[in-house]
Design a protein around this nucleic acid. Structure first.
Length: 257
DNA sequence: ATGGTAGAGTGTCTA
């Protein structure tokens, strides 16, 4: 089985790229973030023609997560138990969706950005991660927590750590939150197959960051022990970020036995 | 400190 995660930065504006990606890589399950679509704007006809079902939670203008699967979508859950809200509850809700696909429990996660370290959104981000960790501890079966974590766990995961001195994504508190999942038995199943430095999953649209490979590694697949034991390979589809009409994130792909 | 780009949708907000 092949599972992927992708911050697509609008599903409707990039549906052609999504369909091409699914076919190019023979994807069974695709977790999406920043779909920027309400549920009533989904599903999209082309996906069902290709044999995929979709489960989604969305919002008018931003956020939005979805899971696309051709191996079934069962026990769909919007949000995880204890997930904090912020501002518009509908927007806050549209950051996590879980489903069992082909026997694997997949969570598509869009971790709050945090904005600035002195912004209340940063506190919200840390609280959100703490509650996710609590929820993840009691998840059973083969579990994958996938998506845009908005954390660069290592200095090598950003193009120039000096430029992030006063920024979110690299603070000790955010990195400790990420490490907490590892302490609980979850593993980054992609990094062993994609050794860095200078291996990224996101490049800002500004200043030709992709062309100069000035990016960040912030999209991860964290698997619990039984999931991780099934992983046979992983890759980052860096080429998907190239050219006109690309998302600012590249898809991350994991193979299971 | 600011601005650069992109997507939601027409007002700015979010990243």
């Amino acid at each position: 089985m092949r599972i992927a995660t992708w911050n697509v930065n609008s599903l409707r504006s990039r549906i052609d790229r999504v369909e091409a990606f699914l076919q190019r890589h023979d994807i069974d399950v695709l977790a999406l973030q920043e779909t920027k679509a309400r549920e009533d704007q989904l599903p999209l006809m082309g996906l069902s023609v290709l044999g995929y079902d979709i489960a989604a939670v969305g919002h008018d203008q931003w956020n939005g997560v979805a899971i696309i699967s051709r191996v079934g979508i069962e026990d769909v859950e919007v949000g995880f138990p204890g997930m904090p809200t912020w501002g518009d509850p509908a927007a806050a809700e549209a950051r996590a969706i879980g489903a069992t696909c082909g026997g694997v429990r997949v969570w598509s996660l869009y971790v709050p950005n945090g904005r600035k370290v002195d912004d209340p959104h940063y506190v919200y981000k840390l609280e959100w991660l703490a509650r996710l960790r609590d929820a993840a501890r009691s998840m059973t079966g083969d579990v994958a927590l996938v998506g845009d974590w908005n954390i660069a766990p290592q200095d090598d995961d950003v193009f120039d750590i000096a430029q992030f001195a006063k920024s979110t994504h690299v603070t000790p508190a955010e990195r400790a939150a990420f490490t907490g999942f590892l302490e609980d038995g979850y593993a980054d199943v992609v990094r062993p197959f994609t050794p860095g430095p200078d291996v990224y999953t996101y490049w800002d649209y500004y200043r030709q960051r992709y062309e100069r490979n000035r990016g960040m590694r912030i999209d991860f697949v964290l698997g619990n022990p039984s999931f991780a034991a099934r992983v046979t390979g992983a890759s980052i589809d860096r080429e998907e970020r190239a050219g006109k009409g690309a998302s600012d994130h590249a898809p991350v792909i994991v193979d299971l036995d």
